[in-house]
Design a protein around this nucleic acid. Sequence first.
DNA 1: TTGATAGTTCGATTACTATCGAATAACAAA
DNA 2: TTTGTTATTCGATAGTAATCGAACTATCAA
Lengths: 102, 102
Amino acid sequence: MRQCFYPSLSKMPLSHILNALSDPARLKIVKILLEKGEQPCGGFRMTVSKSTMSHHFKVLREAGLIQKRGEGTTHITSLRRDEIEARFPGLLNAIAAANKPL
Amino acid sequence: MRQCFYPSLSKMPLSHILNALSDPARLKIVKILLEKGEQPCGGFRMTVSKSTMSHHFKVLREAGLIQKRGEGTTHITSLRRDEIEARFPGLLNAIAAANKPL
DNA sequence: TTGATAGTTCGATTACTATCGAATAACAAA
DNA sequence: TTTGTTATTCGATAGTAATCGAACTATCAA
């Protein structure tokens, strides 16, 4: 698996994070990671193409929200929970709480 | 002052809210409202043109985040704090808390 | 009525972004 | 080595959005 760059959360502007989360597909990805933990790409069961999924993963990764590790032919995606919480306390909780009424 | 439509927060998707907040100028507007309370348009001291400001106010209003009331020739903008808090508990706090390290 | 102030709307431009299919890369199993 | 699986990258396209100046609306004051 190719190496990729993971930005430091400590210098990440909040607007970048919110921009990454403002797409419904990406918000769904994050919600699934929050609720079910780390997933392979196929674990998200979205209706968009593989290349579009890769694009969304890239946006989330460059915003500092997710990381990947390779396991054989699959890439496991996980949230950078602790770092996000340290930089933006309560943000993930607010997103998780918003699941209920939807 | 012309009447305008204020959407119900109860049906507002989180992604719309986050999209409205994902622009640095709009995030700054919300932060100012959080810290200093309601403001006339001129109270924000931003570097963009008046028409651009109007555009950002419209996006924030249509996302259910702000409301306006006319007072003479000025329009006072305020946050819909309680409604936002009821629909997305903790979201405004998370934004307010993120001010500190910046 | 005339002028000043505050803000919105319109039309245009420019830049960004979501999406896809095709090509590619990495890996495992046969 | 060949084949199948998983996922990324590339190039194109279509839609969206940020920005501005100019024109307009509304209100108050002189």
